[in-house]
Each structure stands twice: as structure tokens, then as C-alpha cells.
Nucleic acid binder design. Structure first.
Lengths: 204, 204
DNA sequence: ATCGTTCTTGATAGATCGCTCTAGCGATAG
DNA sequence: CTATCGCTAGAGCGATCTATCAAGAACGAT
């Protein structure tokens, strides 16, 4: 029943999930071994199968859901902290670019690499990534709708935002440049601005 | 010196590259074994190391460059076949969506999965993917510039296009839906249209 | 104190990984 | 014919992979 910190140290399970999230994000799912995860987590090997009887796949699913929720919260926080949605979008892309540079172009989307790897090879994990993306779309749609954009336009704006963000991450990591994030962010901000300036365009 | 077809069958090297391209695209780089590649290619295992003394990494680099060039040609062909750039963009996204559906959401970008996997773990392969992306940016910039868009705006439009495309691929494969490709394509088409309608906006 | 449960721990199995190595086939040149 | 060379062919190496297993430590409940 130990969920954690009598001491300041996170529980073994938490450390495994955290280490798995970091390694899956940077090296992908198939490229990361359980041995490497437990080494990074400073956890005994057997604990993986104690907490995740379903093995690597179950750990992967939990990592996807956990870090997906965390990243969604990051987006919501950026949107709520900003005076308007356009600024929120700009801030979010700028923050993503900053993180990317600070981590040596390692930390971008927490689930994209895994998502592409498993999309055609592992149905349970594919479903986990689909659930996360669906949740992000709902989050963004709600945020833009609250700002006065029609439901349908808000949804399409969110999908365009996520597409631009994920794609910019691919280019940015490969090219080791933040230019794609800047261009993509400005592109989405412009579209959001247009929808807010001429609100009739986006009533759905 | 056999580059191929006295018979109709492609050379062993070609079959290995083709099989590698298909498997890396669908399952990723670390998720694909050399044994699986030679089985798919109906080639002897030893031939891999005959043609690619550098092993899996060298094969990966050749696959990236080959299929990157082929995909670039596909883009150029779509742009040249279309009456105007906006239609070209729409056709290209629509064609990508069609391929995705026809292959059961397996065949999207030929190098994206590999690019994310190796971006922080394998510098030679990362450089190969960076070269391909740089080539695509040059291709798109030239195509849009030829249509009358200023050099700088053409470059940014191309980066926005590639970001939207790659990101839409991620979402589409995970969600098993073409909606992201449709939304992203329309978004890029709209931006291209705006740059062509008001050409002064894009003189750089 | 004793029991039961939860969690820790690492050795180990069985499969697969990338890669090396040697042997041999078949076409061509001399 | 013989020699050479490009390529075929696959057995096998050490390493690593996921997963299993049995045993012990920690701890609360009775």
C-alpha cells in the first residue's frame, strides 16, 4: 500500500514509470530495454513484474497514459496563464522549443516516438496513444471554444495545432533547430487569431 | 557489377533496401531485425554484410537516403501535375491519406519513425534524416518560389507544410483516421492560397 | 509472537539480437 | 582448363532481450 513518500523518495513504481517515460520518449519503445529502465530508476529488476504483471507492454501503456495526462495539463496551464488563446499558443510552442534546446533536442513529445513505433505492431499500445491524442483534442477544443470559437472550428484548430506541433518536433529533433517550432507555432497562432478576429468564420 | 534486371527480378541489394525501407517505415529501426529484412527480401543473410559492410547502420542510412529521395520526387510530381500550388498541396495531402488507408494506416512518412528513434541515439543516422528533411525543404521552397511566392515566405510555407504533414501522420496512424490529414492539408492550402492572393505579404 | 501480505532481489531460462566467419557457386578472363 | 572475383549461403558467436522464479525482507494485523 505504499504510494510513496514517508521518505522524500518516490516509490519504486513511480521511479520505474518516470524512468520509462524518459527513456521511451528519447529512445523509443523497442529501443529501450527493461534492464536500462530499472538501472535508471535504481529499482530491482523483479519489481517491474511485481507492479506490471503484463510486462513491458503494460508498463508502456501506463507510461503513455501518465505522461500523456501530464503533457495535457501543461498545455491547459499555458492556455490558462495567457491573457488570450493566441498568446497561449505562442507561449506553448515557445516553451516546447526551450525544453528541446535545454535537453539537447531530446525531450519533445512524450509519446510520439512510441506512437509511431507501435501504430502497426502493437494494438494495446496503439489504443493507449489514441486515447491520449483524443484527450488532447478534447482539451484543446474546450479551451478554444471557451475563448469564443465555434465548436467545430475549435476542434479543427486543435487538430491543426497538434499536427503542427508533432511534425515540428520531428523536424526540430532531426535538424537540431528550433526553426520548425517557431514557424509552426506562428502558423497556428495566425490561424487562431483569424478565427477570433472574424468569429463568424468559425461557428460550427 | 550486376545492378539488376536481365531477369525481371530486382538485384539482391535492391531487394534488401526495399524490404528494409518497408519494415523501418512500419516498425521502426530498432524494432526491425536484420533477419526479418533478409526474410522479407528473400536474400541470404550474408549478403547484407557483403553490400553493407557497415552493418545495420549503413543499411539504415542508405534506406533513409533512397526512400527520402523517392518521397521528395513524389511531392515534386504532385506539384508539377497540379494547375496551381494550392491544388498541388491539396492533392498531395489527399494522396497521402489514400495511401494510408490502403495500407491499413501503415505507410505514412518513410523516415519519420526512424528519425524520432535515432535523433538522440545515433548521430550518423540522425544526420541522414536531417539531410533528407533539408532536401525536402529545398524542394518545396523552390516549388513555391517558382509559383511567385517570395523566397523567405516559400521556405516558411514549406516548413509549415512538412510539420503539418508529419504531425498529421502521427495522429492519423494512432487514431486510425484521416481527419488530421484533411485538417492539416486544408490548413496549409489556406496559407498557401493567402500568400498567392496577396503576394506582397511574402516577399522576402 | 505468529501469520499473511506486500515488496524486494537477482539468478537464470529461452529466444533473439547484430555480426563474423568460412565454404562454395557461377560467370568470366586468360 | 584454371584462376579470379562477385555473390550466395548459413552456422554459430557473444551479447542482450523479455520474462520467470524462488527466496528473503519489511510490516501490519491478530
Amino acid at each position: 500500500m505504499n504510494a510513496g513518500p514517508a521518505t522524500g523518495r518516490p516509490s519504486t513504481k513511480e521511479r520505474i514509470v518516470t524512468a520509462g517515460a524518459e527513456l521511451f520518449r528519447r529512445q523509443g519503445y523497442t529501443g529501450t530495454g527493461l534492464k536500462q529502465i530499472v538501472a535508471e530508476a535504481e529499482a530491482p529488476f523483479g519489481s517491474v513484474y511485481h507492479f506490471f504483471p503484463g510486462g513491458k507492454e503494460q508498463l508502456g501503456a501506463e507510461v503513455v497514459r501518465t505522461s500523456g495526462a501530464a503533457y495535457g495539463a501543461l498545455f491547459t496551464a499555458a492556455m490558462e496563464a495567457a491573457p488570450d488563446p493566441v498568446t497561449g499558443v505562442r507561449d506553448f510552442f515557445a516553451g516546447a522549443a526551450r525544453t528541446l534546446v535545454e535537453t539537447g533536442y531530446a525531450d519533445a513529445c512524450p509519446i510520439a516516438t512510441l506512437a509511431l513505433e507501435v501504430a502497426s505492431t502493437n494494438e494495446p499500445l496503439r489504443e493507449a496513444t489514441a486515447e491520449v491524442f483524443t484527450g488532447w483534442i478534447a482539451l484543446g477544443t474546450a479551451a478554444f471554444a471557451q475563448a469564443g470559437i465555434g465548436e467545430r472550428a475549435a476542434r479543427e484548430l486543435t487538430i491543426a495545432l497538434l499536427s503542427a506541433l508533432e511534425g515540428a518536433f520531428v523536424l526540430a529533433r532531426a535538424l537540431r533547430s528550433t526553426e520548425p517550432l517557431e514557424v509552426a507555432g506562428e502558423s497556428v497562432a495566425a490561424r487562431a487569431s483569424a478565427l477570433l478576429t472574424a468569429p463568424d468564420a468559425g461557428r460550427g
